[in-house]
């Protein structure tokens, strides 16, 4: 096959389209990265040129190839304390607002979805224990869900590679983990602290019982959904949240590409989305 090349105009057209769809903007200095991945997909799909490939991406009824592109243009890796600024935002900003407005002593409820192998849910627990000054005043429930039962079992076991815990301060690793084989297992108390459940966000019956949450973490998932599924997931979160509850998306994701149900809230640590009290 002849060499496939991406011209500057091709790059500009692709960059604009990708930005419009995902909110991710590639600076010109990322061009090599982008071109390389485009060429990879063009060859993989058997398209003969960027033009043919781009037409397929744009007009393919299923949208499958666009999703493949999103997969290779983004890196999704879970590890402890990933996107830590949001946990900071939780303990410094969101929780104080939630507790200030709370009229009962019922537990504060946090939903982490997708659970993947549990790094995010356990990170939240550790962060709360280490950094939330009001941890003794309130009960907290953390529920973490995934569609994949195998991965839920792994989350419940809580065994992690050294790579996955590399961003944890050593004293926290010592405090909350015990060595296990070549890696580490999270301590029993923490394993008991999180409830792992199976849920398919696209199944209305599955999600119906998920209600009354104060905060939902859903990071780096919706970007891999098509438009309709994404909207549906946003509606699910809306129903699952209490009024004034918060949704946290991944740092490269924006609600601006998903739904207008939520208000944009700025805290010192960053932007999160909030369910309004009334929806006019």
């Amino acid at each position: 096959m002849a060499d496939i090349s991406i011209s500057e105009q091709d790059f500009l057209i692709f960059r604009e389209y990708f930005y419009r769809k995902t909110g991710i903007h590639f600076e010109t200095n990322k061009r090599y990265f982008v071109d390389k991945r485009l060429v990879e997909r063009i060859k993989e799909t058997g398209a003969t040129s960027f033009q043919n490939y781009f037409r397929m991406v744009r007009f393919e009824a299923s949208g499958t190839e666009f999703q493949s592109l999103v997969n290779i243009m983004t890196v999704n890796e879970s590890y402890f304390f990933r996107e830590e600024y949001q946990f900071k935002c939780l303990v410094n900003s969101m929780l104080s607002e939630i507790t200030k407005n709370k009229t009962d002593k019922a537990p504060i409820r946090i939903w982490s979805v997708p659970s993947s192998s549990g790094e995010e849910a356990y990170s939240i627990v550790i962060y709360l224990l280490e950094h939330w000054p009001d941890i003794d005043k309130w009960d907290i429930e953390i529920i973490s869900s995934d569609i994949d039962t195998d991965i839920l079992n792994r989350a419940r076991q809580g065994i992690y590679s050294p790579r996955s815990v590399q961003h944890l301060p050593p004293e926290l690793l010592k405090k909350y983990f015990k060595p296990s084989g070549a890696g580490y297992q999270i301590c029993d108390d923490l394993r008991q602290a999180v409830e792992f459940t199976r849920v398919n966000l696209m199944d209305v019956d599955d999600v119906r019982a998920y209600r009354g949450f104060d905060v939902i973490f859903c990071r780096n998932l919706l970007i891999y959904f098509d438009d309709v599924s994404r909207r549906q997931a946003a509606e699910t979160f809306f129903d699952a949240l209490k009024p004034n509850g918060f949704v946290c998306l991944g740092h490269s994701e924006s609600m601006s590409r998903i739904s207008s149900l939520f208000k944009v809230r700025k805290f010192p640590e960053g932007i999160v989305y909030q369910k309004p009290e009334v929806n006019k």
Binding site: Y19, G23, S254, M255, S256, S260, V264, K266, I271
Partner: peptide, 14 residues
């Protein structure tokens, strides 16, 4: 630049 009102709000708040 922003492509819609929500992205504009995000940028204007930051």
């Amino acid at each position: 630049e922003a492509v819609n009102g929500i992205e504009a709000l995000e940028k204007a708040l930051l």
